[in-house]
Amino acid sequence: MADDLNTYLIISCALFAIGLFGVLLRRNLVAMLIGVELMLNAVIINLVAFAKFSAPEPVTGQVFALFVIGIAAAEAAVGLSIVLAVHKSRGSISVDDLQELAG
């Protein structure tokens, strides 16, 4: 099991599914952000797995995983500052309350 690429790919897919489900289901900004982070982690697992199982350069997959982590950090920083800003101006962090621009 631990020596089969498909195991990790399915883990990754399932985790992605859960994250996606979270993003689609939740209306809370932070909860949606959690869903996104889960999806990013699914990607990381994918990258590391491929690095181990098929990459010509084992380093590449890990490096890209690191890049994903970096991007996740940037995204979280901006996302959370938006959460705080929204909370300050609306008193709520539910996306249902952020529909002024909706036709």
């Binding site: 996606l20 993003v23 689609l24 949606m32 996306v95 952020l98 529909q99 621009l101 909706a102 036709g103």
Partner: peptide, 12 residues
């Protein structure tokens, strides 16, 4: 317009 309802979920 109905698709542009401001819900990220739908876009995604």
């Amino acid at each position: 317009a109905r698709m542009q309802n401001g819900r990220v979920q739908l876009y995604l």
